Measured scan of single mutants.
Amino acid sequence: HNLTITQGKLFFHYNPKLCLSEIHKMEEVSGTKGRQERNDIALKTNGDQASCENELLKFSYIRTSFDKILLRWEPYWPPDFRDLLGFMLFYKEAPYQNVTEFDGQDACGSNSWTVVDIDPPLRSNDPKSQNHPGWLMRGLKPWTQYAIFVKTLVTFSDERRTYGAKSDIIYVQTDATNPSVPLDPISVSNSSSQIILKWKPPSDPNGNITHYLVFWERQAEDSELFELDYCLKGLKLPSRTWSPPFESEDSQKHNQSEYEDSAGECCSCPKTDSQILKELEESSFRKTFEDYLHNVVFVPRKTSSGTGAEDPRPSRKRRSLGDVGNVTVAVPTVAAFPNTSSTSVPTSPEEHRPFEKVVNKESLVISGLRHFTGYRIELQACNQDTPEERCSVAAYVSARTMPEAKADDIVGPVTHEIFENNVVHLMWQEPKEPNGLIVLYEVSYRRYGDEELHLCVSRKHFALERGCRLRGLSPGNYSVRIRATSLAGNGSWTEPTYFYVTDYLDVPSNIA
């Protein structure tokens, strides 16, 4: 807008934040220059609390790290170098490059900038070799853009010569660093050979998330399962459950009422301010606690030095998902009996873990797994792929695949051998790939016309006998059925096997 004052003059007093240069501009645009008398524009009460600059400061050096910015700028000295009290560095987070010096300023003089007072450097006698002032900004957020400017702080001049310097606002972004852990990993099994893994992005990506790394490792069953005799009275049979499938998407929606109208769909109840505040506090606490764990609990591995020492970490090797089922080394339970199943799973520490690289999504279907087997899954978020990966501390989750139908069934015939004193040795093959492992066998036998009897055969007993022995049988026709019990439950009964026990007292003698 054009402003013209045809008559009258300007009068400025007691404006401590208004620089004289701005008042002189007002004289020019209003056409009143030359009308004012000496005392109409006070030299001592206008701009006496402001830094009124008329020179431009330029930054000469900028260096960044993930949490620091090192700045240096060209030296500046007023005509009387004693008038320079120091520099004021202003900075704040700036997602967009549209910041002005006066953003967030209120009537009390406060604003949204963080201000650092910096002492002037030592003055050199040689004007050509003056030290460049600077400042190291610490405690910054990774991968965050900051708006920065600097200006001088000078003393009051009796001659009211307006001098000083100020830089333009520059924008500097800190470097990326390792992201925080992925949030809320959930693993479920939808079949006997697959596990579905879902997660949420890290709360602090500290860069642009480029991919996720998912490692999985087959877990050995508890050692007590191999040692305890679950045929003993009072000892509860062990059981394991597989990871249940995901709930429906509708039930997972946030901010939804727990109660549904019987007449149909209901609208979600909005969260109160107290609920939102509580969630923010919980989120802040979780982030602080995660940072504490990362800094205190997890110790970084030592990389190899120039002395030739090897990095103890196993090298990563990509495998196809079809090879995942046989990740671990199978060892027989008892070496003397080769027909026992290889369900003991000690994992070799030198073995390469299978892994998958996930790009542009937060889910993965891990296939080719062994049925009813526990897996430990390790999830890392990465925001750099080359020249070397920059990934987060791992988040861990466990899951067990679903049982395989008929995996616990005894394959092959049940054979028998009759000894003296009416002892019958029953023999059968253990299931080759049971659900988890076989903890015991149930032997059901009966003599024709009598009630059915049951015998429990422990895992250890089966390994020693290759089956079991029935003792003290009365003469007669017998039928026997056997079924295995694994961590997933009972298998199917075998087809009945028949044998006849004679009275050993009636056996004919070869003595003449």
Rank of each mutant, 00 (worst) to 15 (best):
V501S: 02
T307N: 12
Y396H: 15
G489H: 07
E420L: 09
I276H: 07
A395W: 00
P387A: 14
L455M: 13
R400K: 04
V297Y: 05
L225V: 05
R316G: 11
T241R: 14
L369F: 06
D385C: 15
S474W: 14
P354A: 09
Y396K: 01
V480L: 07
E310H: 14
S315P: 10
S398F: 05
N490G: 13
R469E: 07
W242Q: 08
G374P: 10
K432P: 09
K236T: 03
A335P: 12
R390K: 01
R286Y: 04
G325D: 15
N255F: 03
W428V: 03
V423G: 14
S474M: 10
Y500C: 10
Y448W: 14
P245W: 12
A488S: 05
N326S: 14
E452Y: 14
V324R: 03
H416S: 12
N383S: 04
N255R: 07
L379T: 05
K278A: 11
F355A: 12
K357V: 15
R447K: 03
R459Q: 10
K287M: 05
V393Q: 01
V397F: 15
D229N: 13
V443E: 00
L440T: 03
Y478R: 00
T241D: 15
E351I: 14
L321M: 11
E351V: 13
V345R: 11
T401P: 15
N435T: 00
L364M: 09
V424R: 09
A336F: 09
S398T: 15
R370A: 12
T415N: 01
T497R: 11
G308M: 14
K432H: 14
T343N: 12
Q252R: 10
V457P: 01
T333G: 13
D385V: 06
D503T: 05
L364V: 10
C269I: 04
Q275T: 04
S492G: 14
E404M: 14
V329S: 08
E258F: 09
N383R: 02
C231Q: 04
A335T: 11
V359I: 10
G325S: 14
S444T: 11
R447M: 05
E388F: 11
F289A: 03
R446L: 12
P314V: 05
A395E: 15
D506Y: 09
P354H: 13
N255T: 08
K317P: 09
T288E: 10
C267V: 06
D311K: 09
P270A: 08
N208S: 06
Q275S: 04
T340V: 07
N295V: 02
G325C: 15
A512V: 09
F246I: 07
A220L: 13
D250G: 06
A395R: 05
C266M: 10
V345K: 09
F372D: 04
T497C: 15
Y396C: 03
E356D: 06
K233R: 15
C456F: 03
S444F: 10
R316H: 12
S398I: 07
K357S: 14
V359F: 10
V359A: 14
V345L: 13
D409S: 12
R353E: 09
R483H: 05
S320Y: 12
N326F: 14
S268Y: 04
L277C: 03
W216D: 02
G234E: 13
H254E: 05
P300T: 07
K406W: 09
T210N: 15
K406H: 11
D323M: 14
R316V: 14
E221W: 15
E404R: 10
P314E: 14
L235A: 08
L293V: 04
R483W: 01
D385E: 13
K236S: 07
E310Y: 14
T288D: 05
S398H: 13
R466D: 11
Y292M: 05
P475Q: 09
G325N: 11
H352C: 04
